[in-house]
Nucleic acid binder design. Structure first.
Lengths: 196, 196
DNA sequence: CGTCTATTTGAATGTACTCAAAAGCGGTGG
DNA sequence: CCACCGCTTTTGAGTACATTCAAATAGACG
């Protein structure tokens, strides 16, 4: 049970659980270890699990029709990742989900989630709250893309996730922020020069 | 009660209700009529209601530090609108929410929603499902902004919401899609010329 | 109608992209 | 432990997509 502690703590932040509820919840989970560069979701296949990151770093991305990657989500410790659309509606994925570092995941599959919600409706509240936060974050990111320049978005990210800045390859960060790796390099270079 | 039928139908799409539940839910609602250009939310004030559009058209937008408007959401019949962050966390709004047409709203205030969730946990499921759909839609829009050109985004919108195309002023549509009104005009002009 | 707001048009500009090549860096095997 | 290979980052020149600003035109509403 020890190994499921992080996710249980996460759930307890949002709802209270009896011992029975906790045990049932944990019984639906499984541990998965993935190595750097390994894919856990890919286009055409249905995304069967929602994955909670215990340790490590994951990302979800697409490849557009020009062959360019666009990072739709990043997830470090205590975050969730997957192809959201594919998981919720159990339709073929459009994203790749890969490990950027060796990563330890705790996974809940779709059937498990369904059973959990049917037998323990208390978890509806848990998912409702986490979805509120997800929606709020997505809206903020959209707003940022609509109203800010590339450099402003970079600064915003650097301020919000300083610990991530040196953990993610720059070409991936660029694809997350919505511009090219070359341009990110130029933004950084400009900042270095300014400091002198 | 008649006037609350649209919203009740909307809820019934996602969860089943007993007569008691339906009556209690409706007791928490109120009808609001807003005229074109009228604001129902503005920055600094807390967004107290979640608004369901019965008839008409609303939009949520911000004004950035250069004085430009960015439309974060549009809502026609059978959609919800508000300053999501402000409503969920009951913090000061950052958006304006205004009517683009004379609009009939049904509103649920924050306290009402809280009471509803506390006394009728069944509604957790309702909000969970609607939030799943909201998140999925936001993610798709973000993806579109990350990976597509202005013209492609316009085409996508035109295909997805043909009925909205001639109902929204073009400068607002442009601010929703993430480019300027002038550029939208040029995109449209180009299309007209191609047809000849 | 007249006025106010929205759309169009054009020229100049800017931000970010493309492509290609060089430099840097990190891991792996000999 | 060093040399090499592959991947990431940097650099620069040329380009493209989209913006800005200003003025003209078209539309909507009282």
């Amino acid at each position: 049970m020890e190994e499921f502690l992080p996710i249980v703590k996460y759930v307890l932040k949002h709802i209270q659980l009896t011992e029975e509820e906790e045990i049932f919840f944990v019984s639906l989970l499984r541990i998965t270890k993935v190595k750097k560069k390994q894919l856990i979701v890919q286009p055409e296949f249905v995304c069967k699990h929602s994955s909670y990151v215990v340790a490590g770093l994951m990302r979800a991305y697409i490849i557009d029709n020009k062959g360019k990657e666009h990072t739709i989500a990043l997830a470090i410790e205590d975050w969730w990742i997957g192809d959201f659309n594919s998981f919720i509606f159990q339709t073929p994925a459009t994203f790749f989900v890969e490990a950027l570092e060796d990563t330890l995941l705790i996974q809940l599959d779709y059937e498990g989630r369904q059973r959990l919600l049917e037998t323990h409706p208390k978890f509806e509240k848990f998912f409702r709250i986490t979805l509120e936060r997800l929606s709020a974050a997505l809206q903020q990111r959209l707003l940022s893309n609509l109203s800010k320049s590339a450099e402003q978005r970079y600064d915003e990210f650097a301020k919000k996730y300083p610990q991530l800045l040196n953990r993610i390859p720059q070409y991936i960060l660029a694809s997350y922020l919505g511009f090219t790796a070359e341009f990110l390099s130029k933004i950084r270079n400009k900042k270095v020069k300014k400091l002198k």
